[in-house]
């Protein structure tokens, strides 16, 4: 199932929208409610603070095979708390995702192998326990997907991914 999802993601049918929203209670609810009400399919939604504490930034990844990204953008614009929306899909953009992956280690000898894999992807081992290791991977989603598919052979116990965050290159 995990591999299916990874393959689906490898299909480049996503659009990435960046929305600046007022940092007020209930704004995430309004955005989520819009997505549900209009039957928009989203892959991920990442929210966090910005350089301006009164503004939050959302990166919304749309399944463009099912949903018209331009309509999502225009509907987001209509929300009173949304300050700005940009579709950065066709711009030079840095896109990143952070993942934590907990891998089963049933044989102590495998720790070295897993460490090597992590190193090859410029990832880090952030926790080692008697029967598991935790790897931190940051990068484009395809890189996270690759690490996941290789580590799958060892037995993945738990995965958490932040969803895509994006920022256009160059000056504003």
């Amino acid at each position: 199932m995990l591999i299916d999802k990874i393959e689906a993601r490898a299909n480049p049918t996503t659009h990435t929208l960046v929305a600046l929203v007022e940092n007020k209670p209930g704004v995430l609810n309004r955005v989520a409610s819009l997505m549900r009400r209009r039957n928009f399919n989203i892959h991920s939604l990442a929210v966090g603070e910005t350089e301006d504490p009164s503004v939050s930034r959302m990166t919304i990844v749309i399944d463009a095979s099912k949903t018209n990204a331009a309509l999502v953008e225009r509907n987001l614009h209509k929300l009173v708390n949304v300050i700005e929306v940009q579709d950065v899909s066709n711009m030079p953009t840095v896109m990143r995702e952070l993942a934590l992956i907990k891998v089963s280690v049933d044989d102590a000898a495998k720790r070295g192998e897993i460490k090597q894999i992590a190193d090859m992807f410029q990832s880090r081992v952030v926790d080692v326990a008697k029967d598991s290791m935790m790897i931190e991977v940051a990068g484009e989603e395809t890189k996270v997907d690759s690490v996941l598919s290789i580590l799958a052979d060892y037995g993945i116990l738990e995965v958490v991914r932040t969803g895509r965050i994006a920022m256009a290159r160059g000056g504003k």
Partner: peptide
């Protein structure tokens, strides 16, 4: 007047 109606 509503951009979201165009091409809906």
């Amino acid at each position: 007047i509503d951009a979201a109606e165009i091409n809906k």
